[in-house]
Amino acid sequence: MSKIHITTTVNGDPAEFLASPGMTLLDALRDELGLTGAKEGCGSGDCGACSVMLDGRLVCSCLVLAPEVEGCRVETIEGMAQGGQLHPLQQKFLEHAALQCGFCTPGLLVAAKALLDAHPDPTEVEARYWLAGNLCRCTGYDKIIRAVMDAAADLRQERTA
């Protein structure tokens, strides 16, 4: 089976790799590009630990074939902090102790950022349903939801300031 040459943009930088036709985007990120922040918890799109943005859309990278990302923009957890500065969501996750083992955290942060980009002022219920695709077994979600709501408030203030 010959491999396919893929050219894409990852976190704003050009990236190239060779993909077998059945390779997932998750495997390409982890094994070909060395970006191991996205995690495989299930491989079936049920846990959200592999969440990334694909052309501005939140996806489970385990459900996307690597050859599909030719010419696309991929954003991962590795691109969330900018210039050595944590994103407000990352900072709030730390301040609220919204992580324990941390394995689901990259996916939750990517999904939460997608939420706040699309809906800057979510209700608690909206946040809970938006993040229902991201399993966390450690926290019971309480501190995660608080961190997301707090980050949303800060980001709104930043925008109006």
Partner: peptide
């Protein structure tokens, strides 16, 4: 034997604790 059918709590299943 998968998270879809072995249904663990998600964020929308729970209130603040």
């Amino acid at each position: 034997a998968g998270f879809l059918d072995y249904r663990m709590p998600v964020a929308s299943d729970l209130p603040m604790l």
